[in-house]
């Protein structure tokens, strides 16, 4: 699977090599640490080990123990201390070793961090990015596979961001670290080292704005909206649909909060049909939120009932047939698209 439209023009043959998603994240953190002496990175095993997946590899050597903190296994303290540092002038990257473990720091995130700006009437900004590897499809089972973004979308005051490409991973992470708001940043660990999506990144500093969706493929018959690794399922489904004579538009929303509704509505004005795909459970999930906004704000544009393809309302089981059974797939998207077009 590959992005249909490369976001960056191909470099010359002698130019820089394509970089994967993990390298993009690593560069974002390291470059921001370099540019901002008041930035601190903290998390479990991020220093000596360089992070469970290597996102912070080399960071300790470069910036030292004061700024790259190997934290005790205490997600609450990680988030709480990050908030305190932010209260006293720091910018903080706080890693959750797996985004599944973020629940251990939940109170500090939703009650302490998310509300700080609001309850101080704007006196205090909390530039803290809590980031970590998320997502299923890798046999990680119940506690290493989650996409729990809906918890945080339901907690006012948090940015919720989920890049699908190396370019976005770097540009969005940099943007979040400069944004001044607390952010939950979902990385797809299955994309970390996926060579097929590696791409040339700009040499110069850049950011990707929040609240701007990316149209990954243009189309006219149906709109597929997604984020994270499900974007690639949508692109593969679009390819299948092309063979069947259907033109699908694929939108990668990139940030959930804030959400770029405009791009979705504009697409819908062309296609009049929409399927939202994400790998989180269905009930109260973000697919439902997008569909709710479509039906309340763009009802007249619909020629068919909107569809959501999500994980079943189950935990993520371990062995492959079980795991795939509960998750969105290319086949499920193609089947739903055909039904929607025929409606």
């Amino acid at each position: 699977m590959a992005i249909a439209e490369p976001l960056v023009s191909a470099a010359t043959a002698t130019g820089p090599v394509a970089k994967n998603y993990l390298t993009a994240l690593k560069e974002a953190i390291s470059e921001e640490m370099g540019a901002n002496p008041e930035m601190i990175s903290m998390g479990e095993d991020i220093g000596l080990l360089g992070g469970a997946f290597g996102v912070t590899d080399g960071l300790l050597d470069k910036y030292g123990r004061e700024r790259v903190i190997d934290m005790p296994i205490s997600e609450g303290a990680i988030v709480g201390a990050a908030v305190g540092m932010a209260l006293n002038g720091k910018t903080v990257m706080a890693e959750m070793q797996f985004i599944d473990f973020i629940s251990c720091g939940f109170d500090q995130i939703v009650n302490m961090m998310a509300t700080y700006h609001y309850r101080t009437a704007g006196e205090v900004n909390i530039p803290v990015v809590v980031r970590g590897p998320a997502g299923a499809y890798g046999g990680g089972a119940l506690y290493h596979s989650q996409m729990n973004e809906a918890w945080f979308c339901n907690s006012p005051g948090l940015r919720v961001v989920c890049p699908s490409t190396p370019y976005d991973a770097k540009g969005l992470l940099k943007q979040c670290l400069r944004d001044g708001n607390p952010t939950i940043f979902f990385e797809l660990k299955e994309l970390y080292r996926k060579n097929e999506i590696a791409e040339i990144l700009p040499e110069e500093d850049y950011t990707v704005p929040l609240g701007k969706a990316a149209i990954r493929q243009s189309g006219t018959d149906i709109t597929l909206v997604s984020y994270g690794q499900n974007v690639y399922h949508c692109l593969a489904a679009a390819e299948e649909l092309t063979k069947l004579g259907l033109s699908a538009e694929v939108i990668d929303i990139r940030s959930l909060v804030p959400l770029d509704e405009e791009t979705i509505f504009k697409s819908l004005a062309k296609t009049n049909r929409i399927i939202v795909v994400n790998e989180a459970p269905m009930t109260c999930g973000f697919a439902g939120e997008i569909i709710s906004r479509v039906t309340t704000k763009a009802f007249d544009l619909l020629d068919a009932p909107p569809v959501r393809i999500t994980r079943l309302d189950t935990p993520v089981p371990w062995v492959k047939p079980l795991e795939l059974f509960v998750l969105p797939s290319v086949e499920k998207i193609v089947k739903a698209a055909l039904a929607t077009v025929k409606y």
Binding site: I40, E66, R67, G76, A77, V79, G80, A81, A82, V83, G84, M85, A86, L87, N88, G89, K90, D107, Q108, N111, M112, T115, Y116, R119, T120, V124
Partner: peptide, 24 residues
Amino acid sequence: IHSTSMLAGTIPVAAGVVYADRSR
């Protein structure tokens, strides 16, 4: 430090505040 209803919840914040202070 601004208090909340989650008691003891400001102790990590306090730790972060003085960590930042000490760094300067």
